[in-house]
Design a protein around this nucleic acid. Sequence first.
DNA 1: TTGTAGGCGTTATCAA
DNA 2: TTGATAACGCCTACAA
Lengths: 323, 323
Amino acid sequence: MATIKDVAKKAGVSISTASYALNNQPNVHSKTREKILAAAKELNYYPNASARNLKTKRTGNIGFFIYGFDGPIFGDILEGVNNELQKKGFNIIVSSGESSAVILRERQVDAAIVFDSNLTDDTLLNYSEKYPVIVLDRDLKGKNIYKSQVDNKKAVERFISEMVDKGYKKIAYLSGPKDSPSNLERYKGFCNALNEKGIKEFKHYEGDFTIGCGYELGKRIAQETEKPEFIYCANDESAVGVLQAFRELNVRIPDEISVAGFDGIMLGEYTIPNLTTIAIDYKDWGHNLAHFITVLLNENEVLEIKGPEAKVKFKESTKWKNY
Amino acid sequence: MATIKDVAKKAGVSISTASYALNNQPNVHSKTREKILAAAKELNYYPNASARNLKTKRTGNIGFFIYGFDGPIFGDILEGVNNELQKKGFNIIVSSGESSAVILRERQVDAAIVFDSNLTDDTLLNYSEKYPVIVLDRDLKGKNIYKSQVDNKKAVERFISEMVDKGYKKIAYLSGPKDSPSNLERYKGFCNALNEKGIKEFKHYEGDFTIGCGYELGKRIAQETEKPEFIYCANDESAVGVLQAFRELNVRIPDEISVAGFDGIMLGEYTIPNLTTIAIDYKDWGHNLAHFITVLLNENEVLEIKGPEAKVKFKESTKWKNY
DNA sequence: TTGTAGGCGTTATCAA
DNA sequence: TTGATAACGCCTACAA
């Protein structure tokens, strides 16, 4: 592998001059610059990242840390983050599991976007002593720590409010993991809406955001004698599970029970019936996150991070469609 | 940020002794070792990756390069790769787009797994002068270059053969992009099977592996007067599009036309009717790829890379189910 | 406009 | 068992 030394030698200049030319510094004679660039090209020279990073204390990499690669929404966020970062010359590094902590501790990235509750607060706080962190999955405060979240509460509150107005009374909540912040916020919105409307009682089923669990709960609900009229699921995956169970046990949707979810995952557009949901523009969110980071890193300016749009998509799994 | 120098100072030893202790070298007195580790802990010391990598010429990172974050199969492969790499102490770095070439050129990873045809052969060949590369998406030969592919041809050939035996005669092929190696292999398998069975004619629809395109073609096919009895789609996503179109235009599946795909994506288990497919165990593949790499890197031993299992899942989108 | 030299934080050789 | 010291490849103040 060619190093800058080889390039300098080949071009007949000193290492520093080569470095200047290679980094587009103005203080190089155009003739010399050409010679150097030609030599670099011929030798197939590219700078060694480790050496450059060691010296400059920057890597040009942004880390995105997720709790698993197969979630249905990360793909969208990542697509948005990636598009934006590329424009500004940053690289994206996605990681999951134990690797993530290692990458943070060893400072392999200039900033971190975190959506993985397995990363401890300690690890993040330590890293954030020098580098910015955006947390998407927790409440954490500190210098260099920024938070961005979907406005779960407001979105759910509005939606449920509207559903009550449309005539639903017996509305149930099918939750996510009870310690998940997204779930909690959505639950708050749900409660607020019912409260507002003077509805005191409702059923609560405890789920875990997975299709499988939604399916099991759906089977249970199908056998209840006093069924709810409407089941609001804390995310789409649970809802898909419920749909599946109802279909198998011949619970008619939406005539007997309506179902709705949260996220707007693709799968919901292919179930029968299609799933009504509060759809989030995750790609746009990724875009915003990346934009925030590049401005912060390049211009040291702190913007506000715009959360993503939430938009209800009414489909056949609820009685009232207005699309 | 604490450096090894700080640790050495605090422990009252030289830098080199600190280094030895921190790297579990045997030649350190247990008392000194303890002092050093205590100091490291207190100072919250972690080695600087750039510095270490510069010196050791290894990063401990394996790169996985994909053409987009939202494909339905990458999640599974990545899950498998990640699980296995973590066990062996490697980090995974996933990247897409222009970042990928940068990461390779600047040697930020010790090995690369490539599933992104946007990365040029040149970039890979250059990188492979020093580091191993596994290509999943192309034919490329050279030192340090290894290839692993799903046995597309065999899997499709067997499946189509069986379908003919079951009684289908007018079988059509709905392709992926015509320059995609996976598509080509699947097409070969398809042709072989028909050839073998003495079927000379069949329709060919040119698609691009997306749901949208499958949908458009499905609509076109629904209006044909001479419809095929069976449409074999080069991947599940196309097939899902076809199912959708047929559903909308009241083409009865499988009575009028049967449909099948390739991959075994989750979506296919939620369409109505469920999609018959040649399901690939992508997670297992990821596992195999990672295993190969860790053995190669740690023991410099070249194993055979086991491709993933292909297993037909018969569902309602074809007439004959035997499950 | 170009060159010399020091240092980023490690590892590793060699001598003590 | 420990410590000086050179080196990895690059950037950059400073001198020429």
